[in-house]
Design a protein around this nucleic acid. Structure first.
Lengths: 156, 156
DNA sequence: TCGATACGGTTTCTAATGCAACCAATGGTG
DNA sequence: CACCATTGGTTGCATTAGAAACCGTATCGA
């Protein structure tokens, strides 16, 4: 990051900028790999990851679990449903929502997708040692909470 | 981040995901503050930051310095020019490009903008100590370089 | 000098993202 | 039971980001 910037460039020292470009680089890298291999976009992949892990949930629960917008979740679910990777069942407890779960095919994909995810993760963070990874996690978590604390009171 | 996720949620342990949501939270926080106070969007702010620091450069140099797309730079410059914050001079060395620099008004805004940037940065990362901040920077930098190394050879 | 190629910048088009309005169902209150 | 506020989900719309096509200038080699 420093290499392609003129010396004395203050923008490059701005932490939110470093955070942004790094996240961007990592995200687009992963997005590309998922796209070529499974035809999945990141929101779709996130939904599958959570469903494969938790079993059955509503869209509402998915928005909580993925921290994505509810329309992003809705669209991802629609795509996955059209591809036959997830199925909707009526929710007897609440007629407004449906219960979503992976189909057999969905579970099969999930079984392939998750190892790839771990693989990519391991490759990207291979430059960090074990303890550094944990520390990175910890720092991110704290920054995230702090940002949440600073947000001007908007909760849907 | 852990609080609003069901226990055993594997997505929440996925480092790229943590990186993404954290970056997102920080970015939207900053974007909001700049919007209400200066009517500047992040790309515009970045251009101003670099110009205020480096003095005079072409759009091409700006894309290198900000790591933004060249059309993003172009649009940001157009907006800033319309607002009278930057000016274009013909480039005698190369007729294709222009030399961009802050106007007097632009420098005035820049003088207000940068302290606010540092202020927000300090607030967000106040949860991290001095050495932790430096370490966070270092880790981000390494991850960024690693992501660059893994990218499948596409450079415009 | 001429031609081909590359490059900076601009415009245009299309995909993605987010927001707000909207519909249907629920739950509480009188 | 009627009313109303709330919630899950959906749709439509506006804004944004990115890709590709395009134009004029520069550069390099014959």
């Amino acid at each position: 990051m420093d290499a392609n910037l003129p010396p004395g460039g203050r923008l490059a020292d701005f932490l939110p900028y470093q955070l942004s470009v790094t996240s961007n680089a990592v995200s687009s890298l992963i997005a590309e790999r998922y796209r070529v291999r499974f035809g999945l976009k990141i929101p779709e992949w996130r939904v599958m990851a959570v469903l494969g892990d938790a079993g059955t949930m509503t869209q509402r629960a998915l928005t909580d679990a993925t921290l994505m917008d509810k329309v992003a979740v809705n669209r991802a679910c629609k795509v996955l449903e059209d591809r036959g990777l997830i199925a909707r069942r009526p929710n007897t407890d609440d007629g407004r929502s449906h219960l979503l779960e992976l189909t057999a095919e969905g579970r099969a994909i999930h079984g392939e997708v998750m190892p790839l995810a771990r693989e990519i993760e391991a490759e990207i963070f291979s430059t960090l040692g074990e303890t550094e990874c944990e520390q990175f996690r910890e720092l991110l978590s704290r920054v995230f909470r702090q940002a949440g604390r600073m947000r001007p009171a908007t909760r849907s």
